[in-house]
Design a protein around this nucleic acid. Structure first.
Lengths: 120, 120
DNA sequence: CTTAAAAATGCACTTCCATTGCATTGCTCA
DNA sequence: TGAGCAATGCAATGGAAGTGCATTTTTAAG
């Protein structure tokens, strides 16, 4: 089952909500998905994305995606037209300067707008 | 009532969830808050913040906060210890380069970590 | 000042998603 | 083979966003 989920995610290039995967498999339970994705996340197989819609999305980590390492984070793009969220893995987040006393652990950068397909 | 809400928000320096304000006033209804904040947001009085917790936060716009203008967005800091989210208004978001065909409308940058108070 | 219209507020309800408890199934290894 | 653990499924819970409708308050016109 986990293999099926993994393969499904590998075949898609946009980030998926839990319900997206749920609809793709009629025979799998939401709880299984939820826990599978949680396990995947802990093992560094997927990373969770908050794109501002309030719905958690998940995407497979690319070979070079060291999402556990703070300085190697990529940005995410959310299309306001088609609703898809994609990882722009080649676009790294620039170094952020914080005020004195602040300690960064994680950086999340989401750009909203029109994607490749919807901007034309 | 809207004045009371405004004054309450002006007296706090961290972003507030709807439930935070609800707890501060025993006599106001959630719906009123919800719609008041929505109105405030439309009028440019407050801006909504998604700090990754999945709960929408709201903060008053500072005098120089032109949050409707794309290039003048500031970043937000979410403390993983105390849970507070603050606006770092003096820290502007750097220009982001997007791939060909992508059109940016909005940028959201949230840094998670330890805040001033919790890092010591 | 009176009254009608518009705006603001409150109550109840719905929906959606995340999360958890518990029972059941399936797998692994001694 | 059989005990133990991991994985799965079902059902229920909880929190937050959002909406329809009735009521109160404010505004403005006459």
């Amino acid at each position: 089952m986990r293999l099926l989920i993994y393969r499904y995610m590998a075949g898609r290039d946009a980030a998926m909500a839990l319900s997206d995967i749920e609809n793709a498999f009629t025979k799998v339970d939401r709880t299984t998905l939820y826990r599978t994705l949680k396990t995947f996340e802990e093992k560094g197989v997927v990373h969770q994305i908050e794109d501002g819609t309030g719905i958690s999305k998940y995407a497979l980590c690319e070979p070079g995606c060291n999402c556990s390492i703070e300085q190697d984070l990529h940005l995410h793009f959310h299309c306001s037209n088609c609703g898809e969220t994609v990882c722009l893995t080649e676009h790294k987040i620039p170094q952020i300067n914080l005020p004195e006393g602040y300690l960064a652990e994680d950086v999340n950068l989401v750009v909203t707008g029109l994607c490749e397909k919807c901007s034309t």
